[in-house]
Amino acid sequence: MNAPQTALHGWAAGEAGRPANPDWTIPQRWESYTPKEHATWATLYRRQMALLPGRACEAFIDGMRRLPIEADRIPNFEQLSEVLMRSTGWQVVAVPGLVPDEVFFDHLAHRRFPAGQFIRRADQLDYLQEPDVFHDVFGHVPMLMHPVMADFIQAYGVGGLRAQRLGALEMLARVYWYTVEFGLVREQGALRIFGAGIVSSAAESVFCLASSSPHRIGFDLPRVMRTRYRIDDFQQTYFVLDRLDDLLRLAEIDFAPLYQQVAALPALAPDAVLPDDAIITRGDSHHHRARPPQPA
């Protein structure tokens, strides 16, 4: 029997996925989720919450504790927004899936986090091509309770609109990828996860910290802006912040001169190691050597 076809959502579905609202927001329609969809959330939630103690950073654990995110049901965006607004001025808005870059940046610049309204099928627990409500809410929203992350992501939205005008979006996207999505941070003498792409993935939650395959390198902004990333597999390199507060410094930097500096240098492969890297652990790349090569 053939596997079910994966339906695309939002911008990934082309014109068929475009909603009526120009900001791409839609009603969440929480009451329309089926028992099967809530059960999928419950399976994902319980699996991650069993894995993350001792792996996720304290800011993530604290955000989960303070938000109305429960094991047995998909969260209600209005309830999440009530708590977020009181704490950091953010709200969660429902979108059909991926949205155009300028829409995404505008939402972030105004402290609105666009979360996919749909949830993956039960046969897609381990991998989904698009971000769904589990990735967006479980992965991202707890960190929005942390003042530093709340300010950084707003600054990223403002910076994204500027980067589009400067033709530098690819470089800025790498910063988001290696921090907000796949970032690690030092905490209490160990490495901890804060990136949403990791905390929402059972396999990568273990791989990023325990595997001997990936490199773990101290965060350096120009270095990160040059480094390509994997969208088809685990990351080959994880960049490590000394503390989450370092994100505030990134939010205050004028990126325009950096874009010019980095644009004059070659892009780096996802597994590159440079002589002046602050190497925390140098990987042996055994995982990716066993996989088909990534397209150029």
Rank of each mutant, 00 (worst) to 15 (best):
238 Y>P: 06
9 H>V: 07
21 N>A: 14
261 Q>N: 12
234 F>I: 01
249 R>L: 14
254 D>L: 05
42 A>W: 11
18 R>H: 02
75 P>I: 02
119 I>K: 04
132 D>V: 12
148 V>K: 05
169 L>Y: 14
192 R>M: 09
193 I>N: 08
120 R>D: 01
11 W>E: 11
201 S>Y: 04
83 V>Q: 12
64 M>I: 14
258 L>Q: 15
67 L>C: 03
225 M>W: 11
58 E>P: 01
71 A>K: 03
82 E>M: 08
24 W>D: 02
92 V>G: 07
156 Y>K: 03
267 A>W: 02
228 R>P: 01
93 V>G: 02
163 A>E: 10
96 P>R: 07
252 E>Y: 06
250 L>N: 04
86 R>T: 11
93 V>I: 06
34 T>R: 13
53 P>I: 00
85 M>D: 15
30 W>F: 08
241 L>G: 08
66 R>Y: 00
114 P>S: 00
193 I>S: 08
242 D>L: 05
186 R>P: 03
187 E>I: 01
136 D>M: 03
75 P>F: 04
175 V>T: 11
107 H>Y: 04
34 T>H: 05
258 L>C: 09
110 H>T: 08
184 L>G: 05
87 S>I: 15
137 V>E: 09
198 I>W: 02
12 A>Y: 15
279 I>T: 13
220 D>K: 10
102 E>S: 15
12 A>R: 14
3 A>M: 13
